[in-house]
Design a protein around this nucleic acid. Structure first.
Lengths: 198, 198
DNA sequence: CGTACAATGTGAATGCCGTCAACACTTGTG
DNA sequence: CACAAGTGTTGACGGCATTCACATTGTACG
């Protein structure tokens, strides 16, 4: 680990790492190519060697990292929820609800990264992504007979839409100022509607 | 209507009008103070006489206009839905669903304005705003016995979240590329889940 | 072993944008 | 008619993304 070399050695990763940290605190608007390059100890133009698409491509890379963190958070939620005292159907419903709760919690705790995660259109059928996790939960509910197969198609979109909209309203939107108690009630009611509407 | 006078006469409204048109086609990013001022035939600095808060305050004014258009669209949806052949409960449910459909349709037809409408946190209890329209529909359902009063609180948030999330996923989000047929199915399923989950 | 080439980084310049300060024109009011 | 408030202009500054010509390093091949 020499210092102050002409060549950085792993500039691309360093830039993405720095971008994630900038975005974690200030959201998309804080991921500034110039400042980012300077903070890594490199001139702004150097970034273009690793991101030919410029700022946009850099943002995409940072956003992908944010999506990974979000999915990890949802997996944690599923794992933690599986206390599984009652029947398997109940447990599966708890897992399903846990994904939604984790989604909203992530948005509330890391609004900057959440904003980044929503940037642009990303790969929908990504291995281990949000859609994959939701689909797994819903397939489980079909197998257990809780969700009729006829109503299975597109249900993952309905669920995603509800939690995504809730997350947006609570962070960037008009519900941003809600006190924690009311906020919790609102989350509960939304998950309740989705759970019983499925 | 003299031309090329030193004083514009109604610069503030002209700027907001122009901003709405810019935003209609290019979204938030297209509402550029400099170009806007030039297109109105005025120097950029002149805008600061009418918007002391600068670009942000201008965007707020444009966003408010967008919100008005969105609410108008929802009112149109309610009015048009009232074919009202079956019982009053069914008609009220149709009106409720029509608000959601109008919300999503507006986002799809005017993605730029929709993006603007979501900008920043706005007045939640605005007379004739989105929240007011949803609340009116839900109160109606309570009076008709379709929605138990115990489940009334915060239900407007759940409904709003679902349609808002859907609108975002279909415009800015990963579902932006959906073909119209599948898109329609997705909208239908989401409204179905909300309607039966309420 | 050395040399040519690819990879990577620098400096300086361009253009757009938001913003501000000093100045100019217009309007209306005493 | 003079003056003050309102409104618009010019010019400048700083930040940002981007690009180009040039410098430095690493490496593969003779």
């Amino acid at each position: 680990m020499p210092r102050a070399r002409y060549h950085h050695g792993d500039l691309r990763n360093a830039l993405v790492d720095g971008g994630v940290e900038l975005g974690r605190h200030g959201g998309v608007g804080a991921v500034v190519l110039t400042q980012l390059a300077r903070s890594v100890g490199v001139s702004p133009a150097a970034a273009y060697r690793h991101f030919p698409g410029g700022h946009d491509e850099l943002l995409d890379a940072v956003a992908e990292r944010a999506r990974v963190e979000l999915a990890e958070r949802m997996r944690d939620g599923i794992r933690t929820s599986a206390a599984a005292q009652p029947g398997p159907v109940h447990a599966a419903m708890l897992r399903f609800g846990a994904t939604g709760r984790a989604y909203v919690d992530f948005a509330l705790e890391q609004p900057g990264l959440f904003e980044l995660a929503c940037l642009r259109d990303h790969d929908l059928a990504h291995e281990g992504g949000v859609a994959a996790l939701l689909n797994a939960c819903l397939d489980e509910l079909v197998e257990l007979g809780r969700l009729p197969a006829a109503r299975r198609p597109r249900t993952e979109v309905a669920a995603w839409a509800a939690v995504h909209g809730l997350a947006v309203l609570l962070t960037t939107g008009p519900l941003a100022g809600l006190d924690p108690v009311e906020r919790e009630a609102v989350i509960g009611r939304t998950l309740e509607v989705v759970g019983s509407g499925i």
